[in-house]
Design a protein around this nucleic acid. Structure first.
Length: 608
RNA sequence: GGGGACGUGGUGUAGCCUGGUUUAACACAUCGGCCUGUCAAGUCGAAGAUCGCGAGUUCGAAUCUCGUCGUCCCCGCCA
């Protein structure tokens, strides 16, 4: 074998009829070999795609070599681009009009048989794919996802730089802060017994950069959260982190819309309309049962409590007497899909949210068909029908309970129907903002308020005293969210939270007041956030920002259900990496250096 | 912390509910032969799994039970 000195002229996947007649040097992987005895075809693959190489028997030595090729051998081929003989073009391949007649073949490396096939048609288990991730990444789908990801990142970087944003790196080895998600900890060797934390987000650093006067900051940055994983959650993930000074919400929203439309244009060639619609948190919850509603379909929640004011039906009457609501959804009936048994089974969709049942009324051309129809007066039944504007052959579903139960239940049911009844047009790109979030949420177990967004969010108040009533709250309030609103906003893309942000607190007094309201002790405030409070003393400008979930954005645009499919080397649901076998044990020596005594001692015993 | 699904040659699945005519089936991949226009090539042949692991029930377990490990989905959690 010759030393590596490939002078490649073209990627495989880019050749077309314009290259006909050119002499080319290609390098890549043998995707497949089709040996017809008299003629051998090889599909050569690289990151840009496939091209067909032909070996003809007239060149005996070359032909004999071609017959020795196997899948995934790495080869260098020189040859001439030719038009394929008429009738043998492959319309399924972008390079299908041409082929390369090989003149030389150099095998740069052989390959053992792979543990699974590099094919768009093979369906391999995820564990296997992760163990051999470097092979998995050869598959077209994953390869395209990763390439698209870099394009989108480049588009974001270009756009933000053009708009005058500075890309500043913030530390990964930083300080653990309570409130919020669990931190990954890194023990310090130089200061025994102390720990760094990996950042959940660069939140505080970007605020400090504003105090420094950098004014417009961004970073495409890794964040770390030691929480349980999901299809759209990894322990380390990437966000586009942005912060600006001297801005109002409208400025940040406009900037984000411009960024997103720019990314879609440059990264994916997609045009979208701005500005994006906005709705309040209250509206999102009451109309769609979610703070991240999927607006690609209607199916809105309807509150029928007014119709039932004087109902004799005990379940509904009791609910209303207890300040609850009765709300429902109305869908088109489909007798084949919705047997009585199926209708009953749907209560399992809402059960996890605490709904005790899911009532239903079938509106037929002649009347009503429902297990609860007999408990309702004709006026009530017709009132309900009118509220939903329900024609014949529809089904209305109800949940009756506290708001906290009803809306999330129906929100989930709504998404269930969206999928089940194919109400979602997959081609739509639906962006919108949810604004006017409550500042705080009541934590029942802890008997205190906690931030809905984070404790640095600027409250929508004119005077500090507006927070006094909240600060003294010690018993469960009527509403589990605070009457005080936040200057916060979320951006929703196709029913997923793409990102969120807020205006921040830039005055020391207000920040201290918020910490106190959250029942964080003075000692803790000093220990954990002292540096922030101090920074706010020295001319902190008004500022705010946003963070966009980059993995999620890529996954949604690529139609992937899991962000694992847009991350080169992701972790399993238990946070493991089957490829490297991380996390793993370490040498006793390493533990000793870090003064991790108990483990160190334990390991010593094991080794003896 | 809780609920659910899955684990069978290299890969993906069937068989499991209803234990025994199954010598664990099929497809792809692999290996060998044939083949001059295929492209998820075709064709003939071969090799390849003690059914995740452990225990139990039974005359008999891939199949039933329990435990355990792993993977995935969901709830909690994710300022």
């Amino acid at each position: 074998m010759k030393e590596f000195q490939v002078k490649r002229t073209h990627y495989c996947g880019v050749l077309n009829s314009k290259n006909i007649g050119q002499k080319v040097v290609m390098a890549g992987w043998v995707h497949s070999r089709r040996d017809h005895g008299g003629v051998v075809f090889v599909d050569l693959r690289d990151r840009e795609g496939l091209v067909q190489i032909v070996f003809k028997p007239e060149f005996a030595e070359l032909f004999a070599q071609a017959e020795k090729l196997h899948s995934e051998y790495v080869v260098e081929i020189t040859g001439t681009v030719q038009k394929r003989p008429s009738g043998t073009e492959n319309p399924k391949l972008p390079t299908g009009e041409v082929e390369i007649e090989a003149q030389t073949l150099e095998i740069l490396n052989t390959s053992e048989t792979l543990p699974f096939e590099i094919s768009e048609f093979s369906n391999v288990g995820e564990e296997m794919r992760l163990k051999y991730r470097y092979l998995d990444l050869r598959r077209p789908q994953l390869r395209e996802n990763i390439i698209f990801r870099t394009k989108l990142a480049q588009a974001a970087r270009k756009h933000l730089s053009t708009e005058g944003f500075l890309e500043v790196e913030t530390p990964f080895l930083t300080k653990s802060t309570p409130e919020g998600s669990r931190d990954f900890l890194v023990p310090s060797r130089l200061t025994p017994g102390t720990f760094y934390a990996l950042p959940q987000s660069p939140q505080l650093f970007k605020q400090l950069l504003m105090v420094s006067g950098f004014d417009k900051y961004f970073q495409i940055v890794r964040c770390f959260r030691d929480e349980d994983l999901r299809a759209d959650r990894q322990p380390e993930f990437t966000q586009i982190d942005i912060e600006m000074s001297f801005v109002e919400i409208d400025d940040i929203i406009a900037m984000t819309e411009k960024l997103i439309s720019g990314m879609l244009k440059d990264g994916a060639g997609l045009d979208i309309k701005t500005p994006f619609p906005r709705m309040s948190y209250e509206e999102a919850i009451t109309r769609y049962g979610s703070d991240k509603p999927d607006l690609r379909f209607g199916l809105e929640i309807v509150n029928i409590s007014p119709v039932l004011e004087n109902t004799k039906f005990k379940v509904f009457a009791d609910t209303l007497a207890n300040k609850g609501v009765v709300c429902g959804l109305c869908i088109k009936d489909d007798r084949e899909k919705f047997s009585r048994q199926k209708l009953e089974s749907l209560k399992e969709v809402v059960a996890p949210f605490g709904a005790k049942g899911l009532a239903w009324i079938r509106v037929t051309p002649t009347g009503f068909d429902s297990p609860i129809a007999k408990f309702l007066s004709p006026e009530e039944l017709n009132g309900i029908k009118e509220k939903f504007n329900a024609g014949p052959d529809t089904i209305i579903f109800f949940v009756a309970d506290k708001k906290k139960v009803v809306y999330p239940s129906l929100g989930c049911l709504r998404n269930y129907f969206g999928k089940e009844l194919n109400l979602i047009d997959k081609k739509i790109l639906s962006f919108h903002w949810v604004v006017d979030f409550p500042l705080l949420e009541w934590a029942d177990e802890e008997k205190r308020w906690v931030s809905m967004h984070h404790p640095f969010t600027r409250p929508a108040i004119k005077d500090l005293s507006e927070l006094d009533a909240l600060a003294s709250q010690s018993t469960t309030p009527d509403s589990h969210t605070s009457p005080v609103m936040a200057h916060a906003y979320d951006i929703i893309f196709n029913g997923s939270e793409l990102g969120g942000g807020s205006l921040r607190i830039h005055k020391k007094d207000l920040q201290e007041k918020i910490f106190q309201l959250l029942k964080i002790s003075d000692q803790e405030i000093t220990d954990r956030f002292g540096f922030l409070i101090e920074a706010l003393k020295f001319g902190a400008p008004p500022h705010g920002g946003i963070a966009l979930g980059f993995d999620r954005f890529v996954a949604l645009l690529q139609g992937e259900d899991s962000i694992r499919d847009v991350i080169a080397f992701p972790k399993t649901q238990k946070g493991n990496c089957p490829l490297t076998n991380a996390p793993d044990t370490v040498l006793p020596k390493q533990l000793k250096e870090l003064y991790i005594k108990s483990l160190y001692a334990e390991k010593e015993n094991i080794s003896k």
